[in-house]
Amino acid sequence: MALHEILLQQLFNGLLIGSFYGLVAIGYSMVYGIIKLLNFAHGDIYMIGAFSGLIFLSIASPYIGAGWPSLILGLLITMLLVGLLGVLIQRVAYRPMLKAPRLSILITALAVSMILYNTVMLLSAGRYRAFNVDISSESFYLGALRLTETRVILIVAAFTLMFIMHMFITKTMYGKAMRAIALDRDTCQLMGIDVFKIIALTFFVGSALAAAAGIMAGVYYGTIHFFMGFLIGLKAFTAAVIGGIGIIPGAMLGGLLLGLLEAFGTQIPFIGTEWKDVFSFAFLILFLIFKPNGLLGRSESERM
């Protein structure tokens, strides 16, 4: 492979990983925007999404197979269920803490994270599980770019979800309400917006997107694990900070950028795969020092 072919391949790899980061980062960013909470349980929601998808497939595959149709059905059902789980967690764990100091709710989020992954660890006996789907892994070439059907569909699906999300935030009444609450919760309440309903909706949407990313990662990598949410949670947080935390387009952009940075970073001589995470978190530190509001954020900008 010539250098430009390697770069092209890494560009595609970076965009694919980046779109997973982006999908998870959206939920991170939205929740921060609306209730100023760094929801550390968000990575675990991604993991629960992957496991729910696997459970759906194992129940449904005797009837409808494990091809694309049942995957898409599984994706939608899982997004719905995990979205509701997100709302439940919000209602039980975060809502009672909304008036408490910020640190208390942050610690609550850590506790929720531990409860979630430890529960799945017990249920899955701590083992890696194969995420077997009935999809051809035959590869084909698009110019010099080597692709598989799975990769193309996953990247299209991820970008579609991001686009729908963007439309939802910018064009609908609910999106407008979310942005308004992020600006000033008390005034919104006085204006007759049902703040708690919108917060619940934010959790629903964020969790559903993370669950979608979890299933996609399951399909892409082929194995899932109870601790898979930990690292991606940190990466999504990094992506959200790079893009400007609280800003939805920033989260998507930050995710894609982080994916590309990792993909190209590992191709620099002497920075092997081993240094991938060091590379991403070094960027997080640089951003926190030199551009703490992120790429799209200005200190006075609208947070949502």
Partner: peptide
């Protein structure tokens, strides 16, 4: 989980 850089 991601070995794409190594594979490349």
């Amino acid at each position: 989980v991601d070995f794409s850089a190594f594979v490349t």
